[in-house]
């Protein structure tokens, strides 16, 4: 009787995912890289992929992510993660391969590599962290920076006459035949985090089923370089950012091309 009660009340309902190491990260308070890491690790565990996974790390604030995950990792040059991942996946088609990239990495210097990986239908999964700035180098303007947003290299605010427009990656990649799954999510409320997990699961599932390229864009925060308190940063994601970057699934392949 007593034991049963104990069992009932001490059931563990929350713990560190097996794929995450028990170390503290270098991310700033209020930064969403940590949330994205956790979602990624939980999904690796969910599909029992830890021992079959090769991660490709970006150059950006997440450059040290290999120190936080208990999986094999290779570092890519800035923006080249989809090309490195292509090389890994072609050599080992039975392994699970993902890249994790910021918006400078993926949407500026690495646009060619991401577009062609998607267009080839490369059987990879990409987590794309859109925080509208270059976090690691000190908050410079990114291709995703909002119009009017002040950054260290757009001190008067981004002006389309000089800098063009914020780029919508999830929509753009959804237009490519090789893309199996493309979605944009956010992680600023518990409900959004649940949805984000669902999207990442779907993206993983696409690769597992050999459906082709999958990407989840995550609207993220950079309180440090936005010059905001973490709570205000959440509000910015929920308001201004979600307005320009609508959340949703932009492409979901139902049947493989080869089926």
């Amino acid at each position: 009787m007593k034991n049963k009660a104990k069992e009932k009340f001490t059931k563990q309902v929350f713990s560190r995912p097996r794929s995450l190491l028990d170390v503290s990260t270098h991310y700033c308070p209020g930064c969403h890289h940590g949330i994205a890491h956790r979602i990624l690790a939980e999904t690796i565990d969910h599909f029992d992929l830890r021992e079959k996974t090769i991660g490709v790390a970006p150059v950006g604030c997440a450059v040290l992510m290999y120190d936080y995950f208990d999986v094999d990792f290779v570092e890519a040059p800035h923006g080249r993660a989809p090309a490195v991942a292509t090389g890994v996946k072609r050599a080992q088609p039975d392994r699970f391969v993902f890249t994790y990239q910021g918006d400078g990495d993926l949407a500026a210097i690495g646009t060619s590599e991401i577009i062609h990986a998607a267009n080839r239908g490369e059987n990879l999964t990409v987590l794309f962290i859109n925080n509208t700035t270059y976090g690691m180098t000190g908050g410079q303007m990114a291709p995703t920076t909002m119009l009017g947003q002040k950054t260290s290299t757009s001190p008067y605010g981004r002006d389309f006459r000089n800098d063009g427009y914020p780029i919508r990656i999830a929509e753009m990649l959804a237009t490519l035949e090789g893309t199996a799954f493309s979605a944009r999510v956010a992680t600023s409320t518990p409900a959004q985090i649940r949805k984000a997990k669902e999207a990442v699961k779907k993206a993983f599932d696409m690769q597992i089923r050999g459906m082709g390229f999958s990407i989840v864009e995550i609207l993220s925060t950079c309180p440090t370089n936005w010059g905001m308190k973490p709570l205000d940063a959440q509000k910015r994601v929920l308001g201004e950012m979600s307005g320009y970057y609508p959340l949703g699934v932009y492409k979901e392949r139902k049947q493989a091309d080869f089926a």
Partner: peptide
Amino acid sequence: AESEVATINYLLGTSASG
């Protein structure tokens, strides 16, 4: 490949795979 920039990084990934 789409470019030689991509090419050398395909090599990097395949080489890392042994």
